[in-house]
Nucleic acid binder design. Structure first.
Length: 366
DNA sequence: TTCATGACCTC
DNA sequence: CCTTGTGTCATGAA
């Protein structure tokens, strides 16, 4: 049963606004001299000179094979003379993002920021023509105020809006009206469904499902027995263009930070020292948001890149670093006793959040 | 409820 | 050969 059908699904229109090649576009704005040249924004791990990955590439860079996620060293082999490699400046991109998001809020009270460069807007009581006009205004406003281009998808739900936004990139605007959903989806492959990744796609392929039409032919019961009840139902619905998930601002449920170690190790003192450096960064984010947490996790990424975790849930919520420093060595010790491989990256994460009562509030009759 | 793992996301 | 970083959701076991 659907739990959130308080709304008339028929009359909503969803827009997905996606800022194009966001990090790289931000860099083009403060460095206009880079426009027209391949730009790769990178996250350096600090292991060796060129270790790390490309975070975002502009279209010129993509044209020569430099894409998100590839190792910097691999990208270096593809360069043309005018290619630019930049270190990601996340604070700067965050600041730009926040300004854009506040612009978007002017167009609807119902908004969901999906990531640093994406947001859903829900419109009600509007035609698709009117929605398209609003999308044009949004594009113009973002271009005028920040100099950024974006791609917008419009559809009857988040799934369709998101997939529509990908059709005309960059600087695109794509409307998929309800009567066009079937044609639109049938022109796609299962792997194009937002939420179907490599693993699911190849599992489907093994089942002989290579098209959306074939996915529709699969009985719900079969999908659920293979993919689990939730994912199975989701696939069943998504292949039909059905997605009831609401557009709503969601609260953060965890705060974490991960780093790559200078070299693979399982030396206890090194791990404690490196993990401890992350504590203040995570704690300050938590405190800024006036949150408390009960669960602390130590994350280790082993040399084979597999991810392992150790958690501890406290009896009482806390927001202070001392409690973390007290538990961290225990988590690390049990981690080391359970895993024998060398560790490549480590992180910490806090979750099980609750709001900390603000002292400013003198009266609370809730 | 807690813990551990895995899939997915996208820059 | 090389593979950053952050967060959400789901599942299965204890």
């Amino acid at each position: 049963m659907c739990t959130h059908l308080l709304t008339d699904v028929e009359d909503r229109i969803v827009l997905l606004i996606d800022l194009d090649y966001f990090y790289a576009q931000c860099e083009e704005i403060r460095h206009p001299e880079f426009r027209g040249r391949p730009v790769a924004v990178c996250i350096y791990s600090g292991r060796t000179e060129n270790s790390g990955a490309v975070s975002t590439a502009n279209y010129e860079a993509r044209r020569i094979g430099i894409r998100s996620g590839i190792p910097i060293i691999a990208a270096r082999r593809m360069v043309t003379q005018d290619t630019v490699f930049l270190k990601a400046d996340l604070d700067y991109y965050d600041a730009v993002s926040m300004r854009v998001m506040s612009l978007l809020r002017m167009f609807s009270q119902k908004m969901e920021q999906a990531s640093v460069d994406e947001a859903y807007l829900e419109l009600r009581g509007k035609s698709y023509e009117e929605a398209e006009e609003i999308a044009r205004q949004i594009k113009e406003l973002i271009r005028k105020s920040e100099g950024l281009t974006c791609s917008i998808g419009i559809g009857k739900n988040k799934l369709i809006a998101k997939m529509a936004s990908g059709v005309n990139k960059p600087d695109g605007l794509t409307v998929v009206r309800p009567e066009e959903v079937d044609t639109f989806l049938l022109s796609k492959k299962p792997g194009d469904l937002y939420g179907v990744g490599k693993v699911t796609e190849s599992k489907l392929s093994e089942m002989g499902i290579e098209t959306i039409a074939q996915l529709r032919d699969a009985p719900l019961s079969r999908l659920q027995s293979v993919f689990g009840s939730s994912m199975g139902l989701w696939l069943y619905n998504a292949s039909r263009g059905i997605d009831d998930s609401p557009v709503e601002e969601r609260k953060r449920e965890q705060y974490g930070r991960i780093v790559t170690l200078k070299e693979n190790t399982r030396d206890r003192d090194t791990l404690i020292q490196e993990a401890s450096r992350l504590v203040p960064e995570v704690i300050s984010m938590v405190q800024e948001d006036r949150q408390q947490f009960r669960t602390l996790s130590f994350i280790g990424i082993l040399e084979d890149l597999s991810i392992r975790t150790k958690n501890r849930t406290l009896n009482e919520p806390t927001d202070n670093a001392q409690d973390v420093y007290a538990v961290l060595p225990q988590l690390i010790d049990s981690f080391l006793s359970e895993h024998t491989a060398l560790i490549r990256r480590i992180g910490i994460k806090v979750s099980n959040l609750s709001e900390k009562k603000g002292q400013k509030k003198l009266l609370d009759f809730s």
